[in-house]
Simulated assay, not measured.
Amino acid sequence: MWFTRTSSQAVKVVDIVDTFRLQEQPPFDKKAFVTFMKRFIKNLTPKLEREKQELFKKHIEGATKYLLSKLKDSQFFVGESMNDDGCLVLAYYKEGATDTTFLYFAYMP
């Protein structure tokens, strides 16, 4: 977190959101999030190398379950283009934390 100055007043902003010009999205309920994830998986899977597709499907199920457990305490962001077919960024505060934790999907070969 950092501060910027506008006129004579300091404005508190989350540096990741500000730097990457992330746009906050309305919160998801469980059904809408599952629908989003199904579409995300359907769109991404064919872009992976064939031998990586099954591994991706195996791990994304666990990730989705984990994210569902964080759903009510999360904020959701997309890039400046507002393309909801792109990557969704989740943000939440770990218990007792003062800084936001951001979760991103990443492909690790």
Rank of each mutant, 00 (worst) to 15 (best):
L67C: 14
F28W: 14
E49N: 13
D85T: 13
V78S: 10
E61K: 14
Q25A: 02
N43F: 10
A106S: 15
A97V: 00
S7Y: 08
A32F: 10
D18P: 05
Q23T: 00
K47S: 14
E95Y: 09
F28N: 00
K52I: 03
V89N: 02
S69D: 07
Q53I: 05
D29F: 00
D73Y: 04
E80W: 09
L22S: 04
K12V: 03
G62Q: 12
A10Q: 14
K47G: 13
W2M: 09
K52N: 11
E54I: 00
Y93H: 10
T4N: 13
N83I: 12
M108Y: 12
E95M: 15
A106K: 15
F76W: 06
L71F: 07
Y66D: 08
Y104Q: 10
E24N: 05
T64C: 13
E51W: 14
F56N: 02
A91H: 09
V14P: 06
I60C: 07
E54S: 12
G96M: 06
Q53P: 04
L22R: 08
Y104A: 01
N83R: 12
P26I: 01
D15V: 02
V17Q: 10
R5P: 00
T64P: 11
T101V: 09
V78P: 10
F3A: 11
K65F: 09
A91K: 04
K72P: 06
W2V: 04
L44I: 07
V13N: 05
I16D: 07
L90H: 12
Y66E: 08
Q25C: 02
D99P: 04
D99M: 12
D84E: 12
L48Q: 05
L48K: 13
F33G: 11
K57S: 04
T6S: 05
E80T: 03
D15C: 01
K42F: 06
K70R: 15
E24P: 06
D73R: 13
Q53M: 09
K12T: 06
Q75G: 05
F20A: 07
K65R: 11
M37R: 04
P109F: 06
H59R: 15
V78T: 13
L55A: 04
M82C: 05
W2H: 09
E51S: 15
K65Q: 13
V89D: 03
W2I: 06
Y93A: 00
I41M: 05
K42H: 15
K30R: 15
F20K: 11
K57W: 03
Q25Y: 00
Q53T: 06
A10F: 15
K38R: 14
F76V: 05
Q53C: 06
A91F: 03
W2Y: 10
D29W: 00
T6E: 15
G96A: 01
F105V: 13
E24T: 04
T64N: 07
M1Q: 07
Y66K: 07
F56P: 00
Y107K: 14
D73E: 13
D73H: 08
F33E: 11
E49A: 11
T45P: 00
T35V: 14
Q75W: 03
H59C: 07
D15G: 01
E61P: 02
T100G: 03
R39N: 15
D73W: 06
S8Y: 02
N83W: 08
H59Q: 10
T45E: 15
Y93N: 01
R39F: 00
V17A: 01
D29M: 14
Y104D: 02
K57F: 01
L103H: 06
G86N: 12
K58I: 03
T45K: 15
K12Q: 12
L68D: 02
E80L: 08
F76I: 07
T6I: 08
T35E: 11
